[in-house]
Design a binder for these strands. Structure first.
Lengths: 194, 194
DNA sequence: GCGCAATTAGGATGATTGTCCTAATTCTAT
DNA sequence: ATAGAATTAGGACAATCATCCTAATTGCGC
């Protein structure tokens, strides 16, 4: 098999396992078993566990960049794009209730580990923040764009955490509707609520 | 030394270590070293690591129960009590920026580990929820009490997650002011905002 | 078809882990 | 003061972990 393909399989498997069980709790053997390759082969592609983590973070970053770029293309209003972001918690409902937010839980875990790659993981969170800031600027809220962006991002993290703890689908739906209402109030040409 | 005192020391040390480094990442040896006792002595008080975790969760639960009871006594309006809860993120700012929310990060970790004690950890989150529900009922919002309670709880989790990722003190302050403004709008005799 | 590089397999290693055991020490009741 | 219980110390244990090594196999250019 081409080295690229094997490497890709390893990263994909590690991505899922890190998400489902956490980074520290996932062993080399776990990943090797998931991909059905020997640990020796494994070592050929990644010298250390940290290298796999870096590759997984990079993959997650690229995945999100691609997703955001797609929203940039397909939605023609910034409000619609922000709404896309908000609705992730519904689209990924099942996984979020089981494992939380892939980005939030990873940054939290790496921060506790004081892992060298924690800043790299934080960059994914920053990617979301900066993209949201751009949307709010486009929406005509330049002065409060960062404030609003962090508000939405923090909202998503809070919803994900409670969804995981309480497994309450209705709560997620209610929160989405509430923040969409808030967002609606920010669209120019409407009565502002705050 | 009295058995109770040693046990207490172990639980206290484990509590801090679990908070700072995570449960899975904290070893028997780490705790023993922190308390300065032998692993043998350790085993006399706790047969398994899970037993320590249970004790830590119970301690955290009792600590929070005590804190909420104190707020119930010292603040005479439900709005003031909810404000106390909101301001935890400022009072514990430094620790939250370093390690996140003690309750949220633990429930998230145990959920990924599918640990037998995860429900016990979730009970702390439920304690906050139920206490907040009571406050909002007292505030005269019986119909939407649960909705509001989860809103505040989710808010605190979101703020804690982003505070840890971005280490931005101003963001925390801003968010606290915003939600206190929202809370103010819910106090009877004022113009409701939603 | 041959040679060489890329890729894979699988075992070895040393460190760390949670758990368990036995012997020493300390405390307490009489 | 002394017996018996409570507490502590420290080492042994098997399992698991990330890491490393060497040998086998595969694929590809010629």
């Amino acid at each position: 098999m081409a080295a690229r393909a094997t490497r890709q399989q390893i990263v994909d498997a590690a991505d899922e396992l890190f998400y489902g069980h956490g980074y520290a709790q996932t062993s080399f053997a776990d990943i090797a078993a998931a991909v059905n390759i020997s640990r020796g082969n494994f070592y050929y592609h990644f010298k250390t566990k940290d290298e796999i983590l870096d590759a997984v973070i990079e993959k997650r970053l690229e995945d999100r960049e691609w997703l955001l770029a797609r929203w940039d293309e397909t939605s023609d209003s910034p409000a619609a794009r922000i709404a896309c972001f908000i609705r992730i918690v519904i689209v990924n409902q099942a996984k979020i209730m089981a494992y939380g937010c892939p980005v939030g839980t990873l940054t939290a875990e790496l921060a506790k580990l004081e892992h060298p790659s924690k800043n790299k993981a934080n960059a994914i969170m920053a990617l979301f923040r900066d993209w949201l800031i751009r949307q709010f600027i486009d929406l005509g809220h330049e002065a409060r764009a960062e404030d609003y962006a962090l508000h939405v991002l923090g909202w998503s993290q809070g919803v994900a955490t409670l969804a995981q703890a309480f497994k309450d689908e209705e709560y997620i739906t209610r929160e989405v509707e509430k923040i969409l209402g808030w967002l609606d109030g920010l669209v120019p040409g409407r009565a502002a609520k705050t």
